[in-house]
Design a protein around this nucleic acid. Sequence first.
DNA 1: CGAATTTGTTACCGTTCAGTCCGTAATTAT
DNA 2: ATAATTACGGACTGAACGGTAACAAATTCG
Lengths: 191, 191
Amino acid sequence: MARPLGFDPEDARTALMNVFWARGYEATSMQDIEAATGLRKQSLYRYFGDKHAMYLAALRSYEECVVAEAERILGETPGPARARFSALLDWVIRSSSDTGGMRGCFLANASAEASAADPETAEVLAAMSGRMADAFGAALAADTKYRDDADLRRARTRHLLAAYVGLRVLVKGAFDAAAVREAADDLLLSV
Amino acid sequence: MARPLGFDPEDARTALMNVFWARGYEATSMQDIEAATGLRKQSLYRYFGDKHAMYLAALRSYEECVVAEAERILGETPGPARARFSALLDWVIRSSSDTGGMRGCFLANASAEASAADPETAEVLAAMSGRMADAFGAALAADTKYRDDADLRRARTRHLLAAYVGLRVLVKGAFDAAAVREAADDLLLSV
DNA sequence: CGAATTTGTTACCGTTCAGTCCGTAATTAT
DNA sequence: ATAATTACGGACTGAACGGTAACAAATTCG
C-alpha cells in the first residue's frame, strides 16, 4: 500500500557484517555504518532499530555466510577427518588473503570484545560457536577412531576449535601467512 | 625540588591494565579510568600523556605481570615439555577462576580489537606474542625430540600458541571451566 | 621564612556520539 | 486524480567523549 523499500535488506546486512567485522562494535560509528551501507541513519534506524540491533544482524549475517560455509566444507569434503580440516584451513587462509586486510574471524573478534553485560550478543556468539563445534565434531566422526569414542571426540573438538580461533586471532597481528600455514599444518597432525 | 607524586605509578599502571583488560580500549572511557585508578583525569593526562598512551602502559604492565609469569612457569617447571605446558594451563585456569569474571587474555583481546591503523599497539602486541612464542619454544626444547628438530619445534610452538590464545578467547563466552580443562588436557596430548 | 615548582582539583572546551523530528518525495489504493 | 501511507534526507538534540586551562594546596630548596 505504500512506497517499497529503496534498498536490499540482504545487501545492507552484508555491509553491516563487513564494517563491524573490520572495526568491532565500539569503534564503529554511525558515520562508518552510513558509509559502508550507502544508507542514511534514518533508514537504518527504522529498519534495524538501533546500533546494537545492527550489530546482532551483522553477527547473524556472518553466521549465515561464514559459519554455514565452514559447515559445508567440513561436511562435504570427502575422506577422513584430517582431509576435511585441511580443506577448512585452506579455505580460511585463502579467504584471508583475498580480502587483503587481516580481519580475523568475526566470531573470535566479537568474543574477545564482548562484555559480560551483553547477554544478547553472548547468546548469538554461543549459538555460533556451538554450530562450529557441532560441525567440527561431525567432521571428526568421519574417522572410526572418533566415531567410537565420544569423549575423545568432544575433547578433540574443543582443542581444534580453540586452535582454529587462536589462529584467526593471531593472524591479525602476530602471525604472517607462512606462520599460519605452518601452524595449520602442525595442527592437522593432531587430528 | 617540588611536591612529590601523590600516587604510586606502579599501582596506577596495574589499575589501567585491569580496566583495559576487562573492557577493551574503545569501550573504556576516561570516567572508567578515573574510577579504576582513583585518580583524576588531569593527574593521569599529566603522567601518561593521553588515553592511547595509557593503553600502551596497560599493555606493558600486562607484559610485565602475566607474560613474565608465563615465562617463569614454562622455564622453571621441571621435567619434560608436557609437564611445563600442563603447569602453564593449570595456572591459566586457576587465575581465570580467581578473578571470577572471564576476562580472557589481554594480549588476545587486544589483538582481536586492534585496528591496522595503530602501529604502536601492533608493535607492542608483536613483541609480547614473540616473547610468548620464545617461551613456548624454549619449553618444548626440554624434550630432545624438539631440541633436535628446529622445524618441528617452530611449527609446534605456533600450534600451541594458537591453541592457547583460542582457549583464552573462547573462555569469555563459549567455553565453561570444564570445557577449558578438557580442551587443555587434549591439547597436552599433542605436545 | 619565602620563592619556586609541581601536584591535585574544578570547571570548562570543542567535537562526536547515538538517536530523533519533520518536511518532502514516492508509491499504492480508491 | 486524489488521498493515504510509507520511505527518504537534512537538520537537530542532549549527552558523553577525550582533552585542556586555570587555580589552589603542598613540598623542597635557598
